[in-house]
Design a binder for these strands. Structure first.
Lengths: 190, 190
DNA sequence: AAACATACGGAACCATGTTCCGTTTGCCAA
DNA sequence: TTGGCAAACGGAACATGGTTCCGTATGTTT
């Protein structure tokens, strides 16, 4: 199975890790839309090296956050199994997703950008998280807790949207708004 | 009262109108983030002329949509007077706001952008519409229809956010999501 | 250690917003 | 009517940031 993997050069492997670290640090201090040149400078490499390892900015972002996205995806079934109700599990899972988004400055914005560069970022999140969200929603619908006419995709998209600008104005609390949206899903509402 | 208004030159007045028309047309076909050069070309003027009349892009956007924003602001009291309940008036007004945003491609995005250029755009919308929203919310709260712990600002901000990307994916219906958010405001909900 | 492919650095290129200034033009006064 | 001047214009030039490209350097393999 581990076929003819040509095995990358040592310096290439080293640089990839260096870049991931530099990017992660840069994202924390300047948001995910930090200039590519800044990341290169921080890593001590040329910009060409970044593009060789990560053809698009989205690839770099995905690589940096992959672990956390996987963790979020993995938490879905666990929450469903351990929660009092499917609706509670859904709420808890969305909470996880929101926490992730609001702590990565600019990530929600990038994910919803219509810039073609970020399409694969959006695609990755949807690929990985939409199935989880779908199963949670399905469970809550089966339990009769929420209305049946909600696209899980729309729920995720809307949640992502609500996280945009979180922390920019103290009057806006993204978590709160998402909670209201989830509340609006309940079946007993007009 | 109409004091020492120095009265602009005829060509300047003409160009301002030409620019407004050209910008409006360009916004329709290419969204509000159409390149400045495109607008200039369409109007048959140089880019310098745009900047002289509208120092920032936000000024141009505001000028183009001023009428509609004023109309939306004006509709608030009218709806409150003519609706069955304050909650219905609030819902109808938000609907108006949403309709406005989703039909102006890129406007919702621009309004929530953290780009300093758009700060005055954001400020104008808030200045003009937040008071209206606040009075509608206050009326609904007084009537006991919605929970009292909602910042009108957050409601507007969240609504604007939910309009981002409207029409980009058929699975996402911004109007629907906003309706869910409004539903979530109702007082009888956990 | 020679040869080759891989990977690197960063200059160069493109797109876009913004500024600046030499030129043109409307307006008013003589 | 015309001379002069401030207002307004056009678009080249500049700043910024993403992306490409290629000559050079460096692992790796024989």
């Amino acid at each position: 199975m581990p076929e003819d993997v040509p095995r990358k050069r040592a310096d290439a492997r080293r640089n990839e890790q260096t870049l991931l670290d530099a990017a992660a640090a840069a994202f924390v201090t300047s948001g995910v839309d930090v200039p590519v040149r800044d990341i290169a400078a921080r890593a001590g490499v040329g910009v060409g090296t970044i593009y060789r390892h990560f053809p698009t900015r989205a690839d770099l972002i995905v690589a940096v956050y992959r672990h956390q996205v996987e963790a979020c995806a993995g938490a879905g079934p666990a929450l469903l199994a351990g929660s009092a109700s499917p609706h509670a599990a859904l709420a808890a899972w969305i909470d996880l997703f929101v926490d992730f988004l609001v702590t990565k400055h600019g990530l929600a914005e990038a994910m919803q950008s219509d810039d073609a560069t970020f399409e694969s970022l959006h695609a990755y999140f949807i690929d990985r998280l939409l199935p989880v969200c779908t199963s949670l929603v399905a469970a809550a619908v089966s339990a009769g807790e929420i209305r049946a006419d909600v696209e899980p995709f729309a729920l995720m998209y809307g949640t992502g949207n609500l996280c945009i600008g979180a922390g920019r104005d103290p009057r806006y609390d993204a978590r709160r708004m998402v909670a209201l949206l989830i509340a609006g899903l309940r079946r007993d509402i007009g």
